[in-house]
Amino acid sequence: MRPLTEQETQTLFKKLADYTGPSLKNLIAPLDNTPNADRYVFRLSGQNRVYYVLLSLANIATSISRDKLLSLGVCIGKFTKTGKFRMHITALPVIAPHARHKIWIRPNGVMPFLYGSNVVKAHVGRYSEDCPEHQGVVVYSMEDTPLGFGVTARSTIEARRLDPTGIVCFRQADCGEYLRDEDALFSTG
Protein backbone atom coordinates (compact mmCIF):
# COMPACT_ATOMS: atom_id res chain seq x y z
CA MET A 1 0.00 0.00 0.00
CA ARG A 2 1.20 3.49 -0.77
CA PRO A 3 -0.04 7.05 -0.26
CA LEU A 4 -1.72 8.75 -3.21
CA THR A 5 0.05 11.09 -5.61
CA GLU A 6 -1.18 14.64 -6.06
CA GLN A 7 -3.10 13.79 -9.21
CA GLU A 8 -4.76 10.80 -7.58
CA THR A 9 -5.67 12.80 -4.48
CA GLN A 10 -7.26 15.46 -6.65
CA THR A 11 -9.32 12.91 -8.59
CA LEU A 12 -10.46 11.26 -5.38
CA PHE A 13 -11.44 14.52 -3.70
CA LYS A 14 -13.30 15.67 -6.80
CA LYS A 15 -15.39 12.53 -6.70
CA LEU A 16 -16.03 12.81 -2.98
CA ALA A 17 -16.94 16.50 -3.34
CA ASP A 18 -19.67 15.48 -5.80
CA TYR A 19 -21.62 13.96 -2.95
CA THR A 20 -20.47 15.89 0.08
CA GLY A 21 -20.61 19.47 1.22
CA PRO A 22 -17.98 21.66 2.83
CA SER A 23 -17.77 19.37 5.85
CA LEU A 24 -15.72 16.98 3.74
CA LYS A 25 -12.54 18.40 5.22
CA ASN A 26 -13.50 16.78 8.52
CA LEU A 27 -12.61 13.48 6.88
CA ILE A 28 -8.92 14.21 7.01
CA ALA A 29 -8.91 16.42 10.10
CA PRO A 30 -6.86 15.20 13.06
CA LEU A 31 -8.82 13.36 15.74
CA ASP A 32 -7.77 15.75 18.53
CA ASN A 33 -5.75 18.89 19.07
CA THR A 34 -2.51 17.32 20.26
CA PRO A 35 0.49 17.93 17.99
CA ASN A 36 0.98 14.28 17.03
CA ALA A 37 -2.69 13.43 16.85
CA ASP A 38 -3.82 10.50 14.80
CA ARG A 39 -5.73 11.22 11.58
CA TYR A 40 -7.30 9.37 8.70
CA VAL A 41 -5.37 8.98 5.46
CA PHE A 42 -5.97 7.42 2.07
CA ARG A 43 -3.88 4.47 0.92
CA LEU A 44 -3.74 2.84 -2.50
CA SER A 45 -3.47 -0.93 -2.67
CA GLY A 46 -1.99 -3.07 -5.41
CA GLN A 47 -5.43 -3.60 -6.97
CA ASN A 48 -5.84 0.17 -7.38
CA ARG A 49 -8.29 0.25 -4.48
CA VAL A 50 -8.28 3.24 -2.20
CA TYR A 51 -8.66 2.67 1.52
CA TYR A 52 -9.60 5.19 4.16
CA VAL A 53 -7.57 4.25 7.17
CA LEU A 54 -6.11 5.59 10.40
CA LEU A 55 -2.53 6.75 9.97
CA SER A 56 -1.34 4.75 12.96
CA LEU A 57 -2.89 1.60 11.50
CA ALA A 58 -1.40 2.30 8.07
CA ASN A 59 2.02 2.67 9.65
CA ILE A 60 1.67 -0.61 11.52
CA ALA A 61 0.55 -2.28 8.28
CA THR A 62 3.94 -1.59 6.69
CA SER A 63 5.24 -4.62 8.58
CA ILE A 64 3.05 -6.85 6.40
CA SER A 65 4.40 -7.63 2.95
CA ARG A 66 2.62 -6.07 0.02
CA ASP A 67 1.27 -9.25 -1.53
CA LYS A 68 0.05 -10.62 1.79
CA LEU A 69 -1.91 -7.49 2.77
CA LEU A 70 -5.38 -7.89 1.29
CA SER A 71 -7.42 -5.10 2.84
CA LEU A 72 -7.04 -2.34 5.39
CA GLY A 73 -9.56 0.16 6.76
CA VAL A 74 -12.59 1.17 4.69
CA CYS A 75 -12.49 0.69 0.93
CA ILE A 76 -13.66 3.91 -0.75
CA GLY A 77 -13.47 2.71 -4.32
CA LYS A 78 -10.99 2.04 -7.05
CA PHE A 79 -9.11 3.84 -9.79
CA THR A 80 -10.01 2.69 -13.27
CA LYS A 81 -7.37 2.09 -15.88
CA THR A 82 -8.22 5.42 -17.48
CA GLY A 83 -7.39 7.19 -14.23
CA LYS A 84 -10.94 7.94 -13.13
CA PHE A 85 -12.23 7.05 -9.71
CA ARG A 86 -15.21 4.78 -9.11
CA MET A 87 -16.79 4.79 -5.69
CA HIS A 88 -17.99 1.58 -4.09
CA ILE A 89 -20.98 1.10 -1.83
CA THR A 90 -18.49 0.55 1.01
CA ALA A 91 -17.83 4.33 0.92
CA LEU A 92 -21.41 5.05 1.98
CA PRO A 93 -20.69 5.26 5.75
CA VAL A 94 -17.90 7.74 4.97
CA ILE A 95 -19.89 10.10 2.72
CA ALA A 96 -23.37 9.78 4.24
CA PRO A 97 -22.72 12.01 7.29
CA HIS A 98 -21.35 14.77 5.03
CA ALA A 99 -23.92 14.53 2.21
CA ARG A 100 -24.78 17.79 0.46
CA HIS A 101 -27.94 16.71 -1.36
CA LYS A 102 -30.27 13.95 -0.21
CA ILE A 103 -33.26 12.02 -1.51
CA TRP A 104 -35.59 10.20 0.85
CA ILE A 105 -37.57 7.36 -0.67
CA ARG A 106 -40.90 5.98 0.49
CA PRO A 107 -41.18 2.47 1.90
CA ASN A 108 -42.67 1.24 -1.39
CA GLY A 109 -39.56 2.39 -3.23
CA VAL A 110 -36.95 0.93 -0.89
CA MET A 111 -36.97 -2.61 -2.23
CA PRO A 112 -36.87 -1.64 -5.91
CA PHE A 113 -33.91 0.62 -5.14
CA LEU A 114 -32.11 -2.09 -3.17
CA TYR A 115 -32.59 -4.45 -6.09
CA GLY A 116 -30.71 -2.02 -8.30
CA SER A 117 -33.30 0.11 -10.07
CA ASN A 118 -33.25 3.87 -10.47
CA VAL A 119 -35.39 6.09 -8.27
CA VAL A 120 -38.68 7.12 -9.90
CA LYS A 121 -40.76 10.13 -8.97
CA ALA A 122 -43.52 8.01 -7.42
CA HIS A 123 -41.07 6.59 -4.88
CA VAL A 124 -39.62 9.89 -3.71
CA GLY A 125 -40.76 10.98 -0.29
CA ARG A 126 -38.87 14.26 -0.29
CA TYR A 127 -35.65 15.71 -1.63
CA SER A 128 -33.22 18.51 -0.98
CA GLU A 129 -34.13 21.90 -2.40
CA ASP A 130 -32.00 23.62 -5.02
CA CYS A 131 -30.38 20.47 -6.33
CA PRO A 132 -29.08 20.82 -9.88
CA GLU A 133 -29.11 18.22 -12.61
CA HIS A 134 -26.46 15.46 -12.65
CA GLN A 135 -25.43 16.14 -9.07
CA GLY A 136 -24.38 13.38 -6.69
CA VAL A 137 -26.98 12.57 -4.03
CA VAL A 138 -27.19 10.18 -1.14
CA VAL A 139 -30.36 8.11 -1.03
CA TYR A 140 -32.06 7.62 2.34
CA SER A 141 -35.10 5.71 3.50
CA MET A 142 -37.81 7.69 5.29
CA GLU A 143 -36.26 6.54 8.58
CA ASP A 144 -33.02 8.36 7.61
CA THR A 145 -31.11 5.16 6.91
CA PRO A 146 -28.64 5.64 4.06
CA LEU A 147 -29.39 3.09 1.33
CA GLY A 148 -27.01 4.10 -1.41
CA PHE A 149 -26.07 6.96 -3.69
CA GLY A 150 -26.69 8.13 -7.20
CA VAL A 151 -26.83 11.07 -9.60
CA THR A 152 -29.89 13.26 -10.12
CA ALA A 153 -31.57 12.94 -13.49
CA ARG A 154 -33.45 16.25 -13.20
CA SER A 155 -33.09 19.35 -11.13
CA THR A 156 -35.49 19.75 -8.22
CA ILE A 157 -37.68 22.22 -10.11
CA GLU A 158 -37.96 20.00 -13.16
CA ALA A 159 -38.51 16.89 -11.05
CA ARG A 160 -41.65 18.48 -9.58
CA ARG A 161 -43.27 18.57 -12.99
CA LEU A 162 -42.26 15.01 -13.82
CA ASP A 163 -44.82 12.23 -14.19
CA PRO A 164 -44.83 9.50 -11.51
CA THR A 165 -42.89 7.01 -13.62
CA GLY A 166 -40.19 9.51 -14.58
CA ILE A 167 -36.67 8.82 -13.27
CA VAL A 168 -35.49 11.31 -10.68
CA CYS A 169 -32.16 9.75 -9.73
CA PHE A 170 -29.84 7.32 -11.48
CA ARG A 171 -28.58 4.67 -9.10
CA GLN A 172 -24.83 4.32 -8.73
CA ALA A 173 -24.52 2.09 -5.69
CA ASP A 174 -26.99 0.56 -3.27
CA CYS A 175 -26.76 -1.60 -0.17
CA GLY A 176 -28.08 -4.58 -2.14
CA GLU A 177 -24.64 -4.79 -3.71
CA TYR A 178 -23.34 -6.27 -0.48
CA LEU A 179 -25.25 -9.41 -1.47
CA ARG A 180 -25.36 -9.09 -5.26
CA ASP A 181 -21.69 -8.25 -5.73
CA GLU A 182 -20.34 -10.14 -2.77
CA ASP A 183 -17.74 -11.89 -4.91
CA ALA A 184 -16.48 -8.81 -6.72
CA LEU A 185 -16.78 -6.25 -3.94
CA PHE A 186 -14.04 -7.67 -1.75
CA SER A 187 -12.12 -9.61 -4.36
CA THR A 188 -8.40 -9.31 -4.08
CA GLY A 189 -7.34 -10.97 -7.28
Binding site: P3, L4, T5, E6, F13, A17, K25, I28
Partner: peptide, 16 residues
Protein backbone atom coordinates in the same frame (compact mmCIF):
# COMPACT_ATOMS: atom_id res chain seq x y z
CA UNK B 1 3.29 11.24 -2.72
CA UNK B 2 1.03 13.62 -0.93
CA UNK B 3 0.70 12.45 2.61
CA UNK B 4 1.15 15.48 4.82
CA UNK B 5 -1.89 17.14 6.26
CA UNK B 6 -1.24 20.61 4.84
CA UNK B 7 -0.89 19.45 1.24
CA UNK B 8 -4.04 17.33 1.51
CA UNK B 9 -6.02 20.22 2.98
CA UNK B 10 -4.80 22.54 0.24
CA UNK B 11 -5.86 20.13 -2.49
CA UNK B 12 -9.19 19.57 -0.78
CA UNK B 13 -9.94 23.28 -0.43
CA UNK B 14 -9.00 23.84 -4.08
CA UNK B 15 -11.26 21.03 -5.24
CA UNK B 16 -14.11 22.19 -3.03
Amino acid sequence: FVDDKEAMTTIMSLVQ
